[in-house]
Design a protein around this nucleic acid. Structure first.
Lengths: 147, 147
DNA sequence: ATTGACCTGTGTGTTGCACATAGGTTTATT
DNA sequence: AATAAACCTATGTGCAACACACAGGTCAAT
């Protein structure tokens, strides 16, 4: 089975399969005849595992470590638990940051709705330069208490 | 003013200032004496603009375009409005994806709380391989209607 | 034999910096 | 003045997870 076929079968791109191969997560056999990578059922199962792991937020390096543990005969589950805890913290942080960014962007669009282009004196773009974040604005600091 | 001083003054790292310089967003003058980059008040204002723009979700390339418009004598505000609309869509998408990922991770931790390590037959990690996403599980599809 | 469609591996680009390195400058000390 | 320590600089490279461009190989139909 060549790269494209495996990719299609598993619902990813051929480039993704090649990438996993390059970093050593998949180990196809190089055909002596045409130099193509031949993927086996094992690779297919492995790819399935990678996709599942990615969906749970593990990095490719995480997956390498987990597979490494397993291949050394150790139970990888403790490592898996430890890693997902760390990734969850990161995801939580990203979530909060993205939420705040989204709110800032909404606030900007609202402010810009009622302000004409180039109304203010500015050097580059009056919209951006005159935007004031309603959350971090010092006039609103009475609402918060974390400084 | 050298790179470190400007960076400290504006609350970013020297590497960040160097990066902005490398991509052409800042235009310091190279001292003929020691080869160092000399930043002026103009660069300082420009950096302030960049930081504000980044906080609103603009990419460095967006900022380049906005500045380019401004330097060509055009009002960059229409472009700014257009760009932030696109970025907001992306941020919204990222937000939703991050939210779903977070939920999946929480669900996994819950499932794994009550399942012992290596309890299932598996090839790499029983936890990951036996995890079933409660949202995308076919048994729960009656709750959704988007397929 | 030849055309065209499709496939392959390899190399490079993407984003926004952080880090490593080698060397220059400044300050303090002897 | 010489020297050492502390600090600074520019430049090159690394990171994550692929996507894309490129040159060429393969296969079926003509």
């Amino acid at each position: 089975m060549y790269v494209k076929q495996l990719a299609k079968l598993m619902g990813v791109t051929a480039d993704t399969v090649r990438h996993y191969t390059r970093v050593g997560l998949l180990n196809p056999i190089r055909s002596a005849e045409n130099g193509y990578q031949e993927y086996t059922k094992q690779d297919q199962q492995r790819l399935k595992f990678i996709i599942s792991s990615r969906q749970l937020g593990f990095s490719l390096k995480d997956i390498q470590h987990i597979i490494g543990e397993s291949e050394q005969g150790n139970c990888p589950c403790p490592l898996t638990r430890k890693l997902i805890t760390k990734r969850l913290e990161e995801t939580e942080a990203l979530f909060q940051e993205t939420l705040k960014l989204r709110n800032r962007m909404h606030a900007a669009l609202e402010q810009w709705d009622t302000s004409a282009d180039g109304a203010n004196a500015s050097d580059v773009c009056s919209l951006i330069e005159s935007f004031v974040d309603p959350i971090n604005d010092s006039a609103n600091k009475e609402q918060r208490n974390d400084d």
